[in-house]
Amino acid sequence: MLLSIFLLPLHATEKSKLVYIVSDIEIPFWNIMSRGVIKQANELGYTVEVYSAQNNNKKELEALAKSIQKGIEGIILSPVSSSSAATLIKLAKKQNIPVVVADIGSESSDYISYISSDNRKGAYDIGKILARQFKQRGYNKSSSIGIIAIPQNRENGKLRTDGFLEALSEEDIKTADLKQQRDFSCQETYNFTKELLEKYPNIKALWLQGSNRYKGALKAFEELNREDVMLVTFDAEPEFSLLIEEGIIVGAAMQQPYLIGKEAVKVLDDYFHGKRIVKNIELPVLAISKENVVKNHKVIQTNVLGIVE
């Protein structure tokens, strides 16, 4: 009873402190998500501090330690890895601090909710878009698709591959090969694209499971004089709406990081208010092609790109 009396005025009068620990704020996806977090927190009357781990375990842990010292009341975590997430969740739990995991996932399930994109559905949808293009262009059965994937030990990587391959399988389209990213550099994507196209001349399309190194792929197309190869991606860059309209990129499965950030804060708020919490929340991935890009322009601007007026 005493505790309730003490807590109640705290929530009512003072702004509760939240922390958003993010793997790397420099990466647009996380940057967009952070804006969603901040936006929603402000709207609900929380103060929020954002700590970037700079894709470093140590910094991530230091951020947590700092947060604990500051006496924060809730954590939104987009971890360096699902493994590191487990450690942070464990440590937070010891201090009775609730954690909402926003994307990436966690090897621990001691979070109050995990909010992610429906990677499988998004990949499936983009696979279907590509298949339509295949048919429209009249590619025969000898034609195939190359994949440059994020590491397949990542849960989201696996889901993306599964959903995409399911769609292709339904359309009877073969996959030539799959390359996994290691250093996530532009050069790596360029090299992989080149290798795939040289090794498999029948490749008529390339699917990038990440969006940010698409330029490496385009450069390889150009050098090999294979501008005919269709490019589809998972995720999107601000310029994608235009590139899709121009047909340079055939389609993109677009996650909604801004929406995820907002949703994470909402779940925490619900938790503080004792509402029922859904443990795993999967937000839809937008499958955007030339046909629907214009129609979804506003949604893409806010939820995908975090551009808010």
């Binding site: 375990n57 140590k58 590191s84 090897e107």
Partner: peptide, 10 residues
């Protein structure tokens, strides 16, 4: 050394 606490725990 790489602060992968969960990893060594696993």
């Amino acid at each position: 050394d790489s602060y992968a606490v969960n990893e060594y725990e696993k």
